[in-house]
Nucleic acid binder design. Structure first.
Lengths: 343, 343
DNA sequence: TTTCTTTACTAAATCGGTTTAGTTATTGAT
DNA sequence: ATCAATAACTAAACCGATTTAGTAAAGAAA
């Protein structure tokens, strides 16, 4: 009653000479339906409040078999795209009474695998994952166990799972067409080494846009760089494209960080954008409208991605859906700014 | 053995005709010190692996009295500053075997209070909080309960708690002095309405820099705007400062979002930076070096903030420190770019 | 042969809740 | 006066681990 110890249900029950059952019922607001007298209810609630009673969710979770927690595994919480989505996920989850555990995989498949298991240990009720796409085994495991999970941003195209992604193909197709419509003809692409589905689709969108305009896609115009060292590699890539004998007149960057670093380097090389080259980006940074020149980009609906992911996951968890798997492909939006010179 | 059910310690024990105790000991690698035969150990481990045994951390946590989880409560995970710090916190925590639960308070004290309690329910072993500074009661509660927590970014100056912050005062003092050294004399400040310690200190740093240069700080040059509506209010603020009869020749923005929105509006108003006004920012966005003009800012050591917070918290949790409270004040770094016109 | 060690385990309590299946005392109907 | 209903609780099992305090059997020492 006086010490600094935590109060438990049992303590309250003992102090009040009432059974644990009654206390539990009352504190879970099931007092009325269980005919606990108003007086007793008040005594219990008052006493609990007075002593700062804090229920132990571990015990509760253990008992009811769910933790009311969802796990979020993403490549990197510091990346603006993921942090935006994470914000929405947390907000929506919160509204439904769920808390979220998060972890960054830093694009390491091993780590991602460990994280998945760690999250399972912690009895999360479901998982939202933007995968490295190198964890077939774990994904199969989750499926086998019928564990609720939804993928976003990255998914396993040949596995039948719930996911919410953006139309990556159409995204780059749109920005590439935009360049073509403005009369640019020698369009380069700076993207990442293959391995990720979105990246593959972005590449295809770029190619198809060219094809549609009857332009054959030059192999030398496509440069794929290693993500870990993009900061350094991008300079060579740009030099190769822009200062070549047959230089490109436009560049599509397949991610926001490639684009911003690209612009940084172009400035350093004193190459004028958009006069010398026009540039466009898939995805953006919040400052893309005030950089010089403002970068035309195709933007991802982060809010919709986050809320769709949570909605699908909670459907799975609560079994409120009949569908076996639920998928969503959201549209990107072309945001025209000054980096293509038409303005 | 065949169904899709989860395997528990007990299941393994039953199937193998071995006691739960033995299984638990072995799976926690305490087999040797408890003289469990090598053969038995192998049988148990193999069987556990074969059946994808996943220990239940809720049960474990309940039993050992700790969840090996830390809670992170911040204003907004989507904000680049917080997402960077969160990334570090998670990474460091991970290394020490902790998982992190996060929630955004969206600057709502009520919500923050609820989050704190929700985290306590979930038996986090400690909390890292960037507080709204309107929750004296909860902070006192945590202190009273001797619950391990550390504040960062925002703290309660008159409470004796662990915290890690940045030298906000010196930060604005440095950037203001930078402007003064470049000959700017009529320096405005666009900041937030009072309420947050960092904001108060940034204001003071600005004022003291002026005083030091024998310039009296004009009340009308200081405009404090409401955070919720900064996007709109900032235009009036700028018009008032820059298009006044006695216009400022420089503006200090006390946060990165005020600065970026400020620049956006200045561009819209066709005011030349730095010719008409120089601008500087406390804290930055990753694109501040490629916006036009690149914004001089004083940057916060997000890595150090995050790792110091985790270190201090874990010291508290593990009782590995003698000190009653541990605080750290980190230095900001002045990053000179083109927005002040000296380049 | 008896006793002491050591080896290789195990029974049962515990953590803090939830929940099922009762129990007892009182009221109302007949 | 008797019996069924209802009100107001409660005992005990359970969730899945950890951990303390043993125990039985085998080997070593006396």
């Amino acid at each position: 009653m006086k010490s600094g110890k935590k109060y438990s249900l049992k303590d309250i029950a003992n102090d009040l000479n009432i059974s644990k059952t009654t206390v539990s019922l009352v504190l879970n607001n099931k007092g009325n339906e269980n005919k606990i007298s108003a007086d007793t209810q008040k005594r219990i609630k008052d006493y609990a409040k007075k002593n700062d009673y804090v229920p132990n969710q571990l015990a509760r979770g253990l008992s009811i078999g769910k933790s009311e927690t969802i796990g979020l595994i993403i490549p990197n919480i510091s990346d603006t795209f993921y942090s935006k989505v994470a914000g929405i996920i947390e907000r929506e989850a919160q509204e439904q009474g769920y808390t979220v555990l998060f972890s960054s995989s830093y694009e390491d498949p091993k780590k991602e695998g460990k994280l998945i298991h760690s999250m399972l240990n912690r009895q999360v009720d479901g998982l939202i994952i933007a995968s490295t796409q190198q964890n077939q085994k774990e994904i199969d495991f989750l499926k086998k166990e019928k564990f609720p999970f939804v993928l976003f941003d990255r998914y396993y195209p040949d596995k039948d799972t719930d996911y919410v992604v953006v139309d990556n193909y159409l995204g780059t197709k749109k920005i590439t067409e935009h360049l073509l419509n403005l009369g640019r003809k020698r369009i380069g692409l700076i993207t990442l080494k293959p391995g990720l589905e979105p990246i593959a689709q972005r590449l295809q969108g770029y190619k198809d846009a060219l094809t549609q305009f009857n332009i054959k896609s030059e192999e030398s115009y496509i440069v794929e760089i290693e993500r870990e060292s993009y900061f350094k590699e991008i300079e060579n890539a740009l030099v190769g494209l822009v200062l070549a004998k047959d230089p490109v007149d436009a560049i599509v960057f397949s991610t926001h960080y490639l684009a911003s670093q690209g612009l940084r380097v172009l400035k350093k090389l004193a190459i004028n954008v958009p006069k010398d080259v026009a540039i466009v980006s898939f995805d953006e940074l919040s400052a893309f409208d005030i950089v010089e020149p403002p970068i035309t980009s195709v933007i991802q609906p982060t809010n919709e991605i986050g809320s769709a992911a949570v909605k699908i996951l909670l459907n799975k968890i609560n079994g409120t859906t009949l569908k076996k798997t639920e998928t969503r492909v959201l549209e990107t939006k072309l945001e025209i700014r000054g980096s293509c010179g038409q303005l």
